[in-house]
Every structure is written in structure tokens, then in C-alpha cells.
């Protein structure tokens, strides 16, 4: 654990380079391959799952049904430290360095790609991006190719209350607010020790938790869109803030198992 408390001065000045984390893992894996450390590189199959339902009642009493929900996840860094952050986790013990999109209305297993992990390490926390990382080498967050339409999430649905109906679309970007950090940090997971067999990393996304807190009464009070077109939940609006904050406050469930 001690090494997780060794934040470099670079980190404290906000100049931490997430490329460095990947390099650290690669170096550790290379050493492991020499047989010196007793650790081995194990493959990490990354699988996504969506919600089993598509309808929920919002906090203000609307019945909301999603017809489309695409959510980009990754990169994902799993850490030995009790809380994952740029300085507490300078080197991950498992990672999915890529990003992929999950059909968040499909509860079936969706292959997202492969990651890698170090056997013998215990994972306690993680940090992740929703497909738009912001590395210290970048002047602004950059969408990965997996990000749907260049966004973290694309949600399309209908909210109904009585004889009122709102068709809506939201394209939400959730990015780190500070360069060199992840969009989501400090996400605790059940402590899991990585054994020598291959592992699966499940990423379960439930967009109903996010759309539940939108103020649909306020949306209904907005000027209606042209006939046949959905209401666009625009960046900067309260509804957009609600979705983006919910995506940081109610992160995907991450499960690591053999």
C-alpha cells in the first residue's frame, strides 16, 4: 500500500501523466515475465452489460422509457489503494486502456475488449472515463473512437405523465474537470485479489438511475420542439447537469472475477 501514498510532486502540481501509469504496468509486467517478482500477467476479458428494464418512474412522477442508450466506458484503471485518484494510484494493478460502447438497454454480455492485470495484487478501487479521457498531453478532453457521436452517452427516450408526453434526446459528455485526472475517481469496489488465471471485468451500466432524477416538469414547461422532433436536452441546462452529475455520482458497477 505504501507506494500508493507516494505521490510525486508532478502529481501534486497537476502535471501527472496517465501515460505513465500504463508504462508502469507495462514495466511491471515485463519484470514479471522475467520471473523475478512472482507476479504474472493475466488477461482481463472486459464485458459490458446494460439494464434489464427500460422504463422507470422519475422522482417527479413521470414514466420514462428509454429507446436508445449508448454509453462509452474506458479507460478503466483498477488500483490497490483504498481510493483511486491520480496521486493515490500512480500505477494501476489492472487496466482496460481502451474504451468501448455499451448498449445500456441490453443486459446480455457484450464483449468490450481485453485488458491486463498483475497476479497477486489486490484491487480495492478504480477510476474510469466515459470514453473521453483528458491526458496531461492534451489541451482538452479528447473523445475516443468508441464515444457515440463523440459523446460519453447518447440517451433517447419518452417521458409520459397523464396526457403529456416528451420525446427527448440527450448527448452527454462527462469529462474530468482537471487535466490529467479521470472523470470518475475514488470508486470503491469489493477487494479482489488477482489470481493467476484469466479474469473477467464486468462493467454494468444502468442509465435508468441517471434519467430518474431529471426534472421532467421543467422540461414540459420549455418551448416545445418542432413537430416530429425530440426535445434536445442541451449542454448547460439543468436537465443536462442532472444527467452529467448522476453519471459521476452513480457510476457503473464494476465486478472483477475469475
Amino acid at each position: 500500500m505504501d507506494r500508493d501514498h507516494h505521490a510525486s510532486q508532478d502529481v501534486r502540481r497537476g502535471r501527472w501523466h496517465r501515460g505513465g501509469r500504463r508504462l508502469a504496468l507495462a514495466l511491471a509486467l515485463a519484470l514479471a515475465a522475467c520471473g523475478d517478482t512472482g507476479q504474472a500477467r493475466v488477461a482481463l476479458e472486459v464485458v459490458g452489460r446494460g439494464a434489464s428494464l427500460s422504463t422507470i418512474t422519475s422522482l417527479d412522477g413521470w414514466e420514462v422509457t428509454l429507446s436508445e442508450a449508448e454509453v462509452a466506458v474506458g479507460p478503466i484503471y483498477l488500483c490497490a489503494s483504498a481510493a483511486a485518484s491520480a496521486d493515490l494510484c500512480p500505477s494501476s494493478v489492472a487496466e482496460f486502456a481502451d474504451a468501448a460502447v455499451i448498449d445500456a438497454l441490453d443486459p446480455g454480455a457484450q464483449a468490450l475488449g481485453e485488458g491486463e492485470a498483475l497476479s497477486g495484487e489486490t484491487v480495492r478501487s478504480l477510476m474510469l472515463d466515459y470514453g473521453i479521457p483528458w491526458l496531461t498531453t492534451q489541451s482538452r478532453p479528447q473523445p475516443t473512437p468508441a464515444a457515440p457521436g463523440g459523446h460519453s452517452a447518447r440517451l433517447v427516450g419518452r417521458a409520459v405523465q397523464g396526457d403529456q408526453a416528451i420525446d427527448f434526446i440527450a448527448e452527454v459528455d462527462v469529462v474530468a474537470v482537471i487535466r490529467g485526472t479521470a472523470a470518475l475517481e475514488g470508486i470503491a469496489i469489493s477487494a479482489t485479489t488477482i489470481s493467476e488465471g484469466d479474469h473477467t471485468l464486468e462493467v454494468v451500466v444502468d442509465p435508468l438511475r441517471w434519467i430518474q432524477i431529471v426534472d421532467y416538469d421543467a422540461l414540459a414547461a420549455m418551448p416545445p420542439p418542432p413537430p416530429g422532433e425530440p426535445l434536445v436536452i442541451a449542454e448547460g441546462s439543468t436537465a443536462y447537469n442532472a444527467l452529467a452529475l448522476a453519471m459521476t455520482g452513480a457510476p457503473p458497477q464494476i465486478i472483477l472475477h475469475e
Partner: peptide, 22 residues
């Protein structure tokens, strides 16, 4: 006051909070 009303997502991030923030 709803969190969404006073915490712009472009500035604020609530990941890692010990309690739900609404």
C-alpha cells in the same frame, strides 16, 4: 435546491462521494 441547479457539470464532479448527491 437540486444539485443540478447549482453545480454545473462543466465545473463540478461528485464521483467518490460517500452519499448520493441530489
Amino acid at each position: 435546491v437540486s444539485a443540478a441547479e447549482v453545480f454545473p457539470a462543466s465545473i463540478y464532479n461528485i464521483s467518490g462521494a460517500l452519499i448520493p448527491v441530489t
